[in-house]
Amino acid sequence: MYAQMIKTAGTGVKSREEMTEQERAFQDKIDADIKIEPKDWMPDDYRATLIRQIGQHAHSEIVGQLPEGNWITRAPTLERKAILLAKVQDEAGHGLYLYCAAETLGVSRDEITEMLLDGRMKYSSIFNYPTLNWADIGAVGWLVDGAAIMNQVPLQRTSFGPYSRAMIRICKEESFHQRQGYDAIRKMAEGTPEQKKMAQDALNRLWYPSLMMFGPSDKDSVHSAQSMAWKIKINTNDELRQKFVDQTVPQAEYLGLTIPDPDLKWNEERGHYDFTDPDWSEFYDVVKGNGPCNVDRLAARNKAWDDGAWVRDGLLAHARKKAAAKVAAE
């Protein structure tokens, strides 16, 4: 889940009586699963919430390039290098699709990018954790992309047309990501003792941060209720987290790896795994900017943006010269 802790704009779900005629017509459309398109009327709060959510999602893709990109130059084989590079490239593509979806809401990509760069907008907390050994690359694909897919598959049905279409395109590519991750970590888990140690180390460090990706419990949140009524959030955070744990535990067992939670066990009655909640104080620290990599990640994005300014300006200046010359020739 690349959009965490999105504060829904507005004051909570209105009853039908409280809605204006326009708001009622809007809600009816959503209830009937008719997509909202950029030119349709929409409540200001819906627009504002979507800009935050899609923006945070897009930023997460772009910042998410960094921890995995950290290993491109150290990939151990040519094939692994190509797969990883293609994967990180896909993330740039996903960011691009999502920024385009956000742009249909009236905010330009440069504007929203600057909000990331100066800290006004956030990205997923998971990318503030480091990738320290090669197995992290497998673990990120397996766990982080696995968690992201849980959230993204339902979002294909989200009410805003451009967002929904971006998610459909992204989901097509994401399953490749999770599979390559699992395949990479499987090689490690089945490899030499050192490789197995790397795999376990990666799981130890990334397990709880992956659970945090779903955000704090929100079953009683008014914000979530509004977002769910608008169908820009489909499931609660807890539902998705449980689903993720249930799916991941057997996958870890298959690899012979141990999930770092002594209290993890199957609950026959619930038909789900019981598990230890992540340390939410750590989560809030990371969100506030105190994760292990927050400063580095933002610095890297700022550097790329600042160093690239002359390139963007240069190519645009050339395009304008060419256009002017063309007009002059006509």
């Binding site: 772009i62 390039q65 960094l66 990109g69 491109i72 590079l85 990180v88 490239q89 740039a92 960011g95 691009l96 920024y99 890297a300 550097k303 790329a304 943006w305 160093d307 690239g308 300014a309 390139v311 963007r312």
Partner: peptide, 9 residues
Amino acid sequence: CGHAPVLEE
């Protein structure tokens, strides 16, 4: 990768 001046590049 991840550091270019613009996403398309």
